[in-house]
Design a protein around this nucleic acid. Sequence first.
RNA 1: GUCCCCAUCGUCUAGUGGUCCAGGACUCCGCCCUUUCAAGGCGGCAACACGGGUUCGAGUCCCGUUGGGGACGCCA
Length: 564
Amino acid sequence: MADAPLVTRFAPSPTGHLHVGGARTALFCWALARRAGGRFLLRIEDTDRARSDETNVKTLLEDLRWLGIHWDEGPVHGDAGGDPRGVGPFFQSARGAHYEAALHELLERDLAYPAFETEAELNALRTEAQRQKRDFRYRRPSDFDRAAALARYREGEPCVLRFNNAPREALTVEDEILGAVHFEADTLDDFVLRRRDGSPTYHLAVVVDDEKMGVTHVLRGQEHLNNTPRHLLLQRALGYRVQRYAHLPIILNADGSKMSKRDRDKAVRAALRKRSVDFSELPVASDKLEHWLANKRAQLESAELDALATALGLQLPEISVEDFRRAGYLPEAMLNVLALLGWSPGEKLEDGRDLERFDPDYLAAHFSLARARRSSARFDRNKMLAFNQQHLTALGDEDFTRRFHVWAKRYPAPPHGLSSAQTGALLQMLRPRCQTFSNFLSVDGPGGFAVRGDADYPFDPKAVTRWLATGEPTGLELLPALRDVLAAQRDFEPQPVERAIAAFCEARSLELKVAAQALRVAVTGSARSPGLGETLAVLGRDAVLARIRRCLAECQRATPGGRP
RNA sequence: GUCCCCAUCGUCUAGUGGUCCAGGACUCCGCCCUUUCAAGGCGGCAACACGGGUUCGAGUCCCGUUGGGGACGCCA
């Protein structure tokens, strides 16, 4: 490492599952390091004790690993992590000595000072400023008595340590993506470096760690852009090197708001407020709910939110990597889509199309900040779905089945009456029709007809009108005879069944389509299903006959005009 | 409100002053293939926010307006 290698880092705070924005940042950090033959390190920003715990760290590492993003240095997890350069530890909670040393130096040189206001006092000042439509910026009072403050501090009086930004000069951030970004003089306040409880704030920790860990390139979301001048100030004060910064465009929801982990909480909270529900009937303890409901920043566990959503009949947006994993997306599809959010290869295929489908190896070989975009991007679920479907289709039978079962084991489907032979057959026939793993056994998915009971699947009125109620003869009129054919069918396998139906049509000089669609609608309720033979075979003769009977009974009534 | 960022089809984007009456992908729609349904193939709809400059020439450069987003925490 003699030749100053490029070093990137991903530095999440362990507040739960990795979300889409974080995943994209990690991916770009990884790709840039790979491309440049540098190193990618993972650091856990757990300075906020209230929001960090060990489970969350594991969760985060597991999410990263599932995506296949490998870190060269950092917490050890599987074959990722380690500390070959001796720059660890990688948990900020274990790096206190570094921060204290920096703080000590700053204090000595009057670049930091103790401030004794309580949070309540500061809040009051903020509210007052807001009332007067002024900005609130904390500044060291002009009559500040440094000696006295230091004495109080050394005696152990509770206080925070703030940065002394006396010069308050204009600053320019040289961003690799945005170019030069200027900040007016006087915009920065004396921000906090060390909290009352002795822990370092993000600003201090990030600057110290990036220096000590030899980080050369900082990639992070654009929401951090306003923090960068603070970091510049600190670096200057401490005589540190300045990293190259690249602020990535923010990832937005479909409605244009910032995609945030709290969105799922928000959705459930809104639903809960709108309808007056009895808390005691909900799957989360009511005192916990009360607190969560009252506190906008509070978050429930992913599983708790899912339970609530189910209880309320809500569809929650996928935000975290875990949400997508649970929904049955493939990590390679996810990575592909993520890479396209704010970056593009800019490469044309021979047929004139843009290169859009690629794997991590391609990214590692071609990624560059020069091709990163500046503007924020909405996350397009349709595209994600389409990419996933393609990756699913590309898997190959064996791989596909194996991976499906790995998924299904982790996220068991709700009980359905299907035998394993049936699910196996469904899996194969539904493959080109499914966009996610969860789609296969979902009542709303293309296999819904099989998952639902013989008397439970709904009839699509349009399909009934088109294929059962019209024509000469109508589908409904054909069904009894078709039922007889199927009842007499010995070998109830796809091919023979289809042949029998074809023979039936030939004998009556009917278009196959007429009989096929009538049966399809009768047996699945819809004009779309897998191949007719497969559809009938997977249900089995008994179910098919029962379903035709039900259809005859229900649709005859519903379409009085269907008979001449 | 203040500061900062952004602005090409509904969405993701290509486009770095002429080769753009703007290309691709996703969605939607049509056609072909299939003795049925998908998948697949082919095609269609659809955009340079607005106003000023600069220039022989502007989606591309500059300014403004409008719109969107972010930040304003003893969170990160």
